[in-house]
């Protein structure tokens, strides 16, 4: 059966930690990195589980700063 696999790259230097993507992810795979800030002093978002990502692009669409790049592909297993 084919399965859709996705991956995201978050530009953590551009991210401001607004967490809109955290709420937009249908699987809850994103989180604000605990107790970390980027070079501008903002908290930033990381993906804590990349196994279940389907590359639906919800996080990228809602991101106000355009920090998220999304890749998607089909696997046959």
């Amino acid at each position: 059966m084919s399965k859709i696999k996705g991956a995201v790259i978050i530009d953590t230097d551009r991210c401001k930690g607004c967490a809109l993507c955290v709420a937009a992810c249908p699987f809850g795979l994103l989180e604000v990195a605990p107790r970390r800030v980027n070079r501008k002093g903002y908290p930033y978002v990381i993906q804590h589980d990349d196994d279940r990502c389907t590359g639906c692009a919800s996080c990228g669409i809602v991101c106000p700063d355009g920090c998220i790049e999304i890749y998607r592909t089909k696997t046959e297993d």
Partner: peptide
């Protein structure tokens, strides 16, 4: 399939507009 296999230019579906 590893993360590196997915992150290829042909699989890009969304990015910051150019």
């Amino acid at each position: 399939m590893t993360r590196e296999d997915i992150i290829q230019p042909q699989n890009l579906v969304y990015a910051k507009p150019s």
